[in-house]
Write a protein that binds this DNA or RNA. Structure first.
Length: 1165
RNA sequence: ACUCGGGUGGUGGAAUUGGUAGACACGCAGGACUUAAAAUCCUGUUUGCAGUAAUGCAAGUGACGGUUCAACUCCGUUCCCGAGUACCA
């Protein structure tokens, strides 16, 4: 019988599914074990071969733990909010909800084919309202909490309010600082808004202004990922910094606890180190320097506050460096330097933070013309601005000590600032020396002190002089928590008069409304800002309540008029008092629920505020109360309707009675009316008097959405209790499952996701909602599977347009380029003609030295064959390239590889060329799909092959070359059970077992007979090794152990059930399908999934002797078989008698003989 | 630039605590079986030198240096590659 995995695998997958073999209960007598994968973002490219690496590892471990008798929770879900779906929507118009749904279906079917043991009943999707309801809910818990600095934990903000109301916020010692401290009386006298501003400074999620990457041309905020070489990847437009109101997560309050918590978890040292460095706790001092007045000596001095970890070097300060964004810059810049500073500021604005730090070789800066005064020696110190100082860290200003800090040193050398040496011979004038061991010189009262000791003394002095204080600083910043995007959780927040008001828990989930356009809002806000009726919650009054009965009053009104303000004021009141019936209708027609048409609620049309209006159909729906039956009102209604008809509006009137008694009929009427009217394009612009867009109401929703990490910060809790609609996770469930015992995922999440989820866990713990404050007990980092990326090189018109010409290049495009391009013309000129929005150069058409005029852009690997881009196909298939010009050389568009003189590959562009490989990811367009391999070799082969590739933790390039070997192994295993094979193995020395034995075939499986010692030795050695390897996640060596075992058993022609059955159980975690099938063939009942893991008998592993390697002077010369119970003198005697040893001794006596029992023997001559 | 990883045959990798470098596979070469193919099996395969051969000697874990009886493993310097660097997830 053949190993027919195509038949076996689906069959067992179905049996597992039908019998719910992987369903996990929250109630079991077995000990619990929680194995978790970092859930995937369901990208449009589907599962790639990098995903399963970790998933297979966790699946192996879960199955292993199950065989060992644990109740194992091993769930899977989807991190389904995120930018790529939105980008795709922008390009294709497909709604993210739809593409996401489709992608998840693809992912699930791909995962199922690999045979994972997930309990799909526990699946979570972050974009599911039933899930993000609780993300929003947790956000509100954060919003309504603050970090108590005495108890070092989160507490409800109501406690803080209570404290302010009764005791105020006064300093323990010293004078209160206005704006920071206040008494209870002062607090109570604050306006609501002032109070809220104070509270906002303590809330764990809070709002303030922050910088974003702004692309004017696209009118939108960009992720760093969307920026290449300082310009937007999409379109190549300039990007600059812009301040916008943002939400933040106050993770800095948890910095110390996040550091301390690392001692309690089993993460790799490198992972802990990365987190520690990210948090970047440092101790130092904040020091104020007076700024020398440029007006008169009497002028009250401004102060420049710097943060330094080395206050001991304060006498070595030769200049100050202030971040270009620093508030003081404009104030202190001298008249003479203003022009230079402005120019420098413009330059900095175009630079990304990463570029500013990365390109430290390029030293830039600008003198402000101002001087600070060193209080210790009254020296005047020039103040510079430079991009290497970031506004976000410390105080955004540093004191530069060039003899002790290399960056300061280079800066001083570059700008020829004289350097003061305070460390004597430790400074050589060639480079800075950051030592703490030098004895200080030229340092006033610190002279003669070792720097280490001087730090504390300097701080003390600084504090005595009142010019600064000791300060703990963190490199970590509060995490930005809002995105100007659509596809994320909406904030459960409304703004009223600049105050953020949280929704009530009962109002959750605040569902993400449907949009048609994914472009940014008018001010660069997220797409939600365009949904004026969703955003604007300002209540509208009805005409009647407004008090006017005169239809003639409804003419055009001006947007800035008092009349308009009055309309809004009435609207405010009206919406608050919406009738129940209006609410019923609204629930039925909102979010385009009727035939996809958009209704607005009480949207002003000039001075008239209808109950509901669909602008594109000019259809108004009024739900009338009793008073519409009055004669006077009837006349008024009629007059108004006539007026509206003039503007093309139709009106449907219904009644409260109809809504309550025959809602469907009312809705049918509305639908009918909608479908029978022509669409009118909606007037644009805010000064159209008749229709009112963005009504400018006073109560507005937050239009940003939460970032990707919001949903992933707590998903591990939801798996424990996924269907609960009373709470995010029942305390009983979280107490049972407790921490994740094993968490598997990539190092790329080392500082983002892992820190955020650790913080959320701590907050939930502080608030008593869960019983543990670290989410992940053990973390295993899976290595990246790298793919080979391909690039095309886009000409950047903001580069130097004069140097590059189209000469000697044969242009290539799907249209006849030769007629359109003139040789000798610059690409800029070609673009200026408007023929092509973008020009891409073949790599060999780019001259050396001109690389900076090009940006490498990832291109899908499917369009690149060996090193040539298929220009025809890409321009046909990808709309974004349909109009692009591909400049080729000699008729081909080539990818690039440049070599230096030594023929080593060099990367002239910012990114590597193509050969090195990068993390496999959708955004890099370099993914490889597992389906084909599963189809060709089966899931078991695929699983074992991915494990066989190398250690789970190592990153490795993807390559399918070795898969044959793994597949061969499984077939060989199969043949141990099924002997109907022909071939020389059975015929050469021994007859085939079939001929040899007259026993009946049990499904042609496993005959009896005495189990030999050799077979038992193999079996027990294998059990031991597989168990050890699985325990330490060394799955690649486990696979090779299986191979060795099967090879050896095949050599012994062992077909004995007693041996093979145990091997099968060992194999379950690795190759569950074949194990299940052979288990059944052996005549066993039930799944092998729940078999008992075999134990090994050490008796079979004991050896009595060893073939010792004998080294002479550390070099291996021979081997000697020795009994293990010999002592050193006995061993020495035997060794010295050995012929080869004697040859090397050449008659001399050995100096020393080293004998390491069971290891080796080394003879030193 | 900074933080954290990594670098071993033609390839993926093994060597678990400083103790026989190259397990197990892929590939390649040769062979067996076969009309042939597939499948299967056997032999060889780090490099250089010597030898018909068995084998022996030398070199060898990115490079250079150090510690040690002994270093892929520890230390120092350096080169290269990957991940992350705060709006990709």
């Amino acid at each position: 019988m053949e190993y027919d995995f195509r038949k076996i695998e689906p069959q067992w997958q179905k049996k597992w599914k039908d019998s719910k073999a992987y369903q996990v209960s929250n109630d079991s007598v077995k000990p619990k074990y929680y194995v978790l994968d970092m859930f995937p973002y369901p990208s449009g490219a589907g599962l790639h071969v990098g995903h399963p690496l970790g998933y297979i590892a966790s699946d192996i471990y879960s199955r292993y733990k199950r065989l060992k008798g644990f109740n194992v929770l091993h769930p899977m879900g989807f991190d389904s909010f995120g930018l790529p779906a939105e980008q795709y929507a922008l390009e294709t118009g497909q709604h993210p909800a739809e593409t996401t749904k489709k992608n998840i279906a693809t992912f699930k079917s791909q995962l199922d084919k690999i045979g994972f043991c997930y309990d799909w009943d526990r699946e979570v999707q972050t974009s599911d309202p039933n899930y993000y309801k609780w993300t929003q809910w947790i956000f509100l818990q954060l919003f309504n909490s603050y970090f108590c600095n005495t108890q070092k934990k989160a507490l409800p903000i109501s406690l803080l309010i209570n404290k302010y109301e009764t005791r105020g916020a006064m300093p323990k010692t010293g004078e209160p600082i206005p704006g920071k401290h206040f008494t209870a009386a002062q607090w109570n006298a604050f306006s609501k808004k002032e109070q809220e501003e104070v509270l906002m400074n303590r809330r764990l999620t809070f709002s303030k202004y922050g910088e974003v990457n702004w692309c004017e041309a696209l009118g939108t905020v960009l992720a760093n990922d969307e920026i290449v070489n300082g310009i937007s990847e999409r379109g190549g437009h300039p990007v600059e910094k812009k301040k916008m109101r943002q939400w933040y997560l106050r993770i800095t309050d948890y910095a110390d606890r996040l550091l301390d918590g690392l001692d309690k978890v089993a993460f790799s040292d490198s992972m802990k180190e990365m987190q520690r460095n990210w948090i970047g706790k440092s101790e130092g001092a904040e020091v104020d320097f007076e700024i020398k007045s440029q007006k008169s000596p009497q002028d009250p001095a401004e102060k420049l506050k710097v943060y330094t970890t080395r206050p001991d070097t304060i006498f070595g300060v030769d200049f100050m460096v202030v971040a270009p964004e620093h508030d003081l810059v404009s104030q202190i810049t001298s008249v003479e330097q203003k022009a230079a500073i402005d120019e420098y500021l413009a330059y900095v604005k175009s630079r990304s933070e990463r570029e500013r730090l990365a390109e430290a070789k390029i030293i830039t800066g600008c003198f402000t013309g101002a001087y600070a005064i060193n209080s210790f020696n009254k020296r005047e110190i020039p103040i510079w601005i430079a991009e290497y100082v970031l506004a976000g860290y410390g105080t955004g200003a540093i004191m530069a000590v060039p003899c002790g800090d290399q960056r300061d040193f280079l800066f001083a050398k570059h700008f020829k600032v004289p350097i003061t040496n305070i460390i004597g011979s430790h400074y050589n004038g060639e480079e800075a020396n950051p030592t703490k061991d030098a004895v200080l010189e030229n340092s006033g009262f610190l002279n003669g002190l070792r720097m280490k000791d001087a730090i504390g003394i300097a701080i003390k002095k600084i504090e005595e002089l009142g010019i600064g204080k000791k300060k703990v600083n963190y490199r970590m910043r509060d995490a930005g928590f809002s995105r100007q995007r659509y596809w994320g959780e909406p904030f459960p927040i409304v703004w009223q008069d600049g105050i953020a008001i949280p929704l009530d828990a009962e109002e959750l989930p605040l569902e993400l409304p449907h949009v048609d356009k994914y472009g940014p809002g008018p001010e660069g806000e997220g797409p939600l800002a365009n949904l004026t009726d969703w955003v604007d919650l300002t209540p509208n009054p009805s005409p009647r309540e407004r008090g006017t009965q005169d239809p003639a009053a409804f003419g055009y009104i001006n947007s800035t008029s008092e009349e308009w303000k009055k309309t809004i004021a009435f609207a405010n009141q009206n919406r608050k008092e919406a009738t129940d019936e209006e609410d019923i209708i609204w629930q039925e027609i909102r979010n385009r629920k009727i035939a996809g048409f958009k209704f607005r609620r009480q949207h002003p049309i000039s001075g008239y505020i209808p109950d509901f209006v669909c602008l594109e159909k000019r259809l108004i729906v009024e739900i009338d109360g009793e008073y519409h039956n009055e004669d006077e009102q009837k006349i008024f209604d009629k007059g108004r309707e006539n007026w509206l008809n003039e503007f093309g509006f139709t009106m449907i009137r219904s009644t409260n009675y109809a809504v309550n008694n025959n809602l469907n009929a009312v809705l049918k009427d509305i639908e009918h009316a909608l479908l029978n009217k022509e669409t009118v394009s909606e007037p644009e612009g805010s000064n159209t008097p008749l229709f009112w867009r963005g009504a400018g109401g006073e109560v507005q929703r937050e239009t940003s959405t939460m970032p990707g990490y919001a949903g992933s910060s707590w998903y591990f809790l939801r798996y424990m209790d996924p269907h609960n609609n009373q709470t995010f996770c029942d305390r009983k469930a979280s107490d049972y499952w407790n921490q994740v015992d094993l968490y598997i995922g990539g190092t790329e999440h080392a500082v983002g996701h892992l820190l955020y989820s650790r913080m959320w866990t701590k907050v939930l713990f502080d608030l008593g909602l869960i019983g543990f404050d670290e989410p992940f007990k053990k973390l295993l980092n899976q290595g990246m599977i790298t793919g080979v990326s391909e690039f095309i090189y886009r000409y950047n018109p903001s580069g130097n347009p004069e140097t590059i010409r189209m000469t000697s290049i044969i242009p290539y495009q799907n249209i006849d380029m030769s007629t359109l391009l003139e040789t000798g013309e610059t690409p800029a000129a070609t673009m200026a003609k408007g023929l092509y929005p973008e020009i891409y150069f073949s790599f060999d058409a780019i001259k050396k030295g001109e690389e900076n005029n090009f940006s490498p852009i990832h291109v899908d690997i499917k369009y690149v064959d060996s090193n040539k881009l298929d220009v025809n196909t890409i321009t046909q298939n990808e709309s974004k390239y349909s109009k692009a010009c591909f400049v080729c050389k000699d008729g081909f568009y080539l990818r690039g590889e440049w070599y230096n003189d030594k023929l080593e590959k060099i990367s002239p562009l910012l990114y590597t060329t193509t050969s090195a490989g990068e993390k496999m990811s959708k955004s890099k367009l370099n993914t490889q799909n597992p389906d084909e391999l599963c189809e060709k070799y089966g899931a078991d082969t695929f699983r074992m092959y991915e494990m066989f590739l190398g250690p789970v933790e190592a990153s490795k390039p993807w390559d399918t070359k070795g898969i044959e070997g793994v597949h061969r192994f499984l077939r060989k295993l199969w043949r141990l059970f099924n002997d109907d094979i022909k071939g020389p193995i059975w015929t050469s020395s021994a007859p085939s077992p079939l001929e040899q034995s007259s026993e009946t075939k049990i499904g042609s499986v496993a005959r009896g007979g005495e189990v030999t010692d050799a077979e038992l030795k193999i079996l027990h050695r294998t059990i031991k090794k597989i168990e050890e390897d699985t325990e330490r996640f060394s799955f690649n060596t486990a696979v090779s152990t299986f191979m060795i075992c099967v090879n050896e058993l095949a050599d012994l022609k062992c077909h004995k059930k007693e041996v093979l059955e145990k091997i099968l159980i060992l194999l379950v975690p690795y190759a569950p399908h074949i194990a299940e099938e052979l288990w059944q063939q052996l005549g066993n009942e039930g799944f092998i999934l729940d078999a008992r893991y075999p134990t090994f008998d050490p008796a079979w592993l004991v050896e009595s002797s060893k073939d010792y390697p004998i080294s002479i002077n550390g070099k291996l010369r021979t081997n000697i078989q020795l009994a293990l119970d010999l002592d050193q003198p006995q061993v020495e005697e035997i060794v010295l008698q050995n012929e080869i040893v004697q040859k090397w001794l050449e008659g001399k006596a050995p100096k020393k003989i080293i004998y390491v029992k069971n290891k080796m023997i080394n003879v030193v001559i």
